[in-house]
């Protein structure tokens, strides 16, 4: 545990941790308390997109460029435990991401449960779980792609497109569920769990692959 935090803090400095781990999630819960009751299920969806944007743009400040072929791993390459530590740092980041998203969305779900919502309680719990699975999976896939980009203008432009594509996907899901009643939420929970597994695999595997590649001679 101590090692995990130590390695994680190599990439994520104090200001980043305070802003991304404390300030913005607190702001999200604050926004949610204002929204809840007015927008019903859409308010949970807005917070889900908010967490996705936070995860994507927050990643720029810590792991930016880690998948790009020119990335220099510095001292990680000079130690015997370099690969292990890099893996630990990324896995810790993924665990942090899952816990953060779960924490914020579960609190938001609990607020909806305690309010006079039109949805039944089982439905709210299921919707919260689906959104947690979706946000984590989408976030992991988006950042795995964006970690190839080192220039921030291009990063921002591409991030907007990817976030809007995934956001549109989940909004269509919610629209079909609550406007036309044609979607089975349990099936989608399974689909999103598969998305989580793929996302986690990509997020962890790609930097390690890049790390291994950094020892090889570059083709001219």
């Amino acid at each position: 545990m101590k090692d995990m935090l130590k390695v994680y803090r190599i990439f994520c400095n104090r200001i980043y941790s305070i802003v991304v781990l404390v300030l913005f999630p607190a702001l999200a819960i604050g926004i949610y308390t204002m929204l809840t009751g007015r927008l019903a299920e859409w308010s949970l969806f807005i917070i889900a997109i908010y967490m996705m944007v936070l995860g994507v743009f927050g990643d720029f400040f810590c792991y930016n460029g880690i998948n790009s072929k020119d990335f220099q791993f510095g001292l990680f390459r000079n130690t015997l435990n370099g690969r292990k530590n890099l893996k630990l740092a990324i896995v810790t980041d993924q665990i942090r991401r899952l816990l953060q998203i779960s924490f914020v969305l579960l609190i938001c779900g609990a607020i909806t449960l305690s309010s006079n919502s039109t949805l039944n309680k089982c439905e709210i719990v299921l919707l919260t779980l689906i959104l947690i699975a979706f946000v984590y999976g989408a976030n992991s896939i988006i950042i795995s792609l964006l970690r190839f980009i080192t220039e921030y203008t291009i990063y921002m432009g591409t991030a907007f497109i990817l976030v809007s594509i995934f956001g549109a996907a989940v909004s269509v899901l919610i629209l079909y569920r609550y406007e036309y009643m044609t979607i089975n939420l349990w099936a989608w929970l399974i689909v999103f769990i598969v998305l989580d597994v793929i996302g986690s695999f990509l997020a962890v595997k790609m930097p390690l692959r890049n790390f291994d590649r950094s020892f090889k001679e570059r083709e001219v």
Binding site: N64, G65, I149, E151, Y152
Partner: peptide, 13 residues
């Protein structure tokens, strides 16, 4: 530093 962090890291050979 933050604006060019990714590029700086990749060029720091």
């Amino acid at each position: 530093e933050i604006a060019v962090k990714g590029i700086a890291r990749s060029l720091n050979k």
